[in-house]
Simulated scan of single mutants.
Amino acid sequence: MDLVVTAAGATVRGVAAVSPRWGATLAMPLFGSVAKPRPVRPDDEATMWRARRRTVRIAGVDRRGVDVDTYEWGGGARTVLLSHGWNSRASQFTPLIRELVAHGYRVVAFDAPAHGSSAGRRTYLVDWLDVFAALQQRYGAFDAMIGHSFGGLATLVGVAGGTDAARVITIAAPADADLLLSQFQGMLGYSDAVSARMRERFATRYFPGQPDPFAWLSSVRRPLPAEVPLLVIHDEGDRIVPYAEAGRIMSANAGGRLLATTGHGHNRILVADAVLDAVLEHLEVPSAARTSPASPGVRTATVLPAAAAGELISASVAA
Rank of each mutant, 00 (worst) to 15 (best):
V303L: 14
V15R: 11
A119I: 01
R290D: 13
L188R: 04
N87K: 09
F202H: 13
I146M: 07
G85A: 13
A246Q: 02
A8C: 08
G23Q: 05
A177P: 01
R138W: 02
Q136D: 09
A165R: 03
V232W: 00
A77D: 15
A112Q: 06
L30N: 09
L312W: 04
S88A: 15
Q210I: 11
R52K: 13
L180H: 05
A90T: 14
S295N: 07
I249Q: 00
S195K: 08
R199S: 04
I269S: 01
A203L: 11
D277G: 02
T79G: 11
H282L: 12
L217G: 10
R239L: 15
S195H: 13
R122A: 00
G65R: 13
R197G: 00
A10G: 14
T300M: 08
L179Y: 08
V107M: 03
G256S: 05
R63G: 09
R89V: 05
R54N: 15
P305R: 15
P95H: 11
G32P: 10
V228K: 02
M28R: 15
S251C: 01
M198Q: 03
T155W: 00
F150M: 15
L30C: 13
R199D: 00
A165E: 12
V108G: 02
R167G: 12
I233C: 05
D212Q: 12
A16C: 06
D192P: 01
S251G: 12
L135D: 00
G85F: 11
R106V: 09
P293V: 10
A16I: 04
P42T: 13
L3R: 05
G75V: 12
V101A: 08
E245T: 03
D176F: 01
V61H: 06
F214P: 06
G310Q: 05
D192T: 10
F142Q: 05
G65L: 12
A112W: 00
A203T: 11
V5H: 00
I233E: 03
F202Y: 15
V159A: 10
G32F: 04
A77F: 04
E281V: 06
H84T: 08
F184H: 04
D69H: 11
L231G: 03
H148L: 07
M145Y: 00
R122N: 01
P211M: 10
I58W: 09
P95Q: 07
T155I: 07
F110Q: 04
R106E: 05
L30Y: 13
V285C: 08
G147V: 01
A289H: 07
S191A: 08
I269H: 08
S316P: 07
F184S: 03
A307F: 06
L100Y: 09
S295K: 15
R54T: 12
G263F: 03
A288T: 12
